[in-house]
Nucleic acid binder design. Structure first.
Lengths: 257, 257
DNA sequence: TAAATAGTGTCTCTTAGACATTATGGT
DNA sequence: ACCATAATGTCTAAGAGACACTATTTA
């Protein structure tokens, strides 16, 4: 049997093949809203997702995750990054793969297997874009609102639920908090970001834990200026707070020891 | 614009669509080989992967991961389970999604986006099958051997590498060890299974850690018989060893406290 | 001086980690 | 008696967890 025979016998023409393989992106951001109490205080933070309103069939007029079809010449991740930039203008952000959504009938256009990604975007990057193009209707919605009260296109509610569940887990198990923080931050800010994503996170002695346990010492370090002096910030408090920065180290986690 | 117009305008016919969406499965098992020293001792364990030899183009004659194309009527996970059963006869096993492999050119048959799964299979289930059908040439290979010394079809080396990396992480962060153990096991066995998957895992006081720390108490418990008596085993040692069983509880992991 | 956040002192109990020691029962 | 595995004793240092307390600056 020649190779061309083989090749012909494997031709996909005789099988039903998928009608498309899009990437959909759950874009998370944390908005900051200054309290107007006059006094310095930590801003109110809220976890939000970016949605776009569909302009065409199917689910015309409904809110949906941004995304679009992959091309033969790109990997799925490239597709996700391209769509992310096309639809929101943001690039070079933290993007992670969430999973495949392939339930039959999930898309009325046919057999369409979707790949979901999570993007964690600093509000600053997103706000810049919001003003820039208003050609497409986009919106930022509180995650709870979007999950509970909105009717979403396709299986996007399920995807969002999975994405939310994943970043809650990751928020505690990794240093993704840095995606929502400036390079140098106070422990108060970090604590607040964590609680914004994981409402149940109550750590009384948060500062103590970070600063006094050796096993977590390596994760972040005190920020210092050119002279080696410790840097502090009075952005959110009267008393100057020590600034910290992530080192890049993430400890391995184990349930056995 | 009528819906059929919309529908027509979205027809996938005018776009290039994928030529297939297969699932490939990395089947891990741990083989047990009794030492023939005569004395009772823990068996030698080894982490292995199951591969099949390809019978046709492309990569004819080369070893590859078992797998096959998804149908329009099934989810990817169903595809993976179906292929797993078709090719190895095992069912109802622990299966987890690994990720999508979509690099252009990864499959000479066309634009084929593959979905990788990990299956963790108890040797007993696999051995039963091995004898049953030898129509297809299958083989169990030590993971290091497969990764370092074998030429594999497609991007299957990369998939295997990712799968190995993932189960090493999961072995420490979850209770997947139970997939390789009988329902009741000794701490010696558990320790050995963990070290088989994670060679670097050296926990001197393993028994002590499991039995004396409150935070890990809930993960497993002493096995008891109908009368509530503690059960022990002398399968691997002279001195009877306490049997344990997993409770199903998995503690949340956090780097912050 | 009240408000708001940052950070320390102090105490108790638990855990980590290292090493030595004992236990069990067959060859 | 020796072996391989199982399990405990003992000690020290470190961490967890709770709560009260002090620190810093501005409205």
């Amino acid at each position: 049997m020649s190779q061309s025979d083989n090749e012909r016998s494997y031709s996909s023409a005789k099988y039903r093949t998928p009608d498309g393989a899009p990437a959909d992106i759950v874009i998370f951001t944390i908005t900051k809203q200054e309290k107007r109490s006059g006094k310095k205080s930590l801003p109110v933070r809220e976890l939000k997702v970016l949605l776009i309103r569909r302009k065409a069939w199917p689910f015309q007029g409904m809110w949906a995750l941004p995304g679009g079809f992959s091309k033969e010449t790109e990997t799925m991740e490239v597709t996700a990054r391209r769509e992310l930039e096309e639809e929101t203008g943001v690039r070079d952000v933290h993007l992670e793969y969430l999973g495949v959504y392939s339930a039959p009938g999930r898309d009325p256009r046919g057999w369409i297997i979707s790949h979901a990604y999570c993007a964690l975007v600093n509000e600053a990057l997103l706000a810049h874009r919001q003003a820039a193009d208003d050609a497409e209707e986009v919106g930022l919605f509180a995650i709870d609102d979007a999950l509970e009260n909105m009717e979403l296109a396709f299986d996007h509610r399920e995807i969002m639920r999975d994405a939310y569940s994943k970043i809650r887990e990751q928020m505690l198990a990794s240093t993704i908090a840095k995606q929502f923080l400036p390079e140098r931050f106070t422990l108060g800010e970090l604590h607040q970001v964590i609680r914004t994503v994981v409402p149940g996170f109550e750590e009384h002695n948060f500062i103590r834990k970070i600063t006094s346990t050796q096993s977590r010492k390596g994760i972040m370090e005190e920020a210092r200026d050119a002279n080696g002096e410790k840097q502090t910030s009075i952005e959110y408090s009267q008393r100057p707070a020590q600034l910290y920065r992530f080192t890049g180290y993430e400890p391995p986690l184990s349930i056995y020891g």
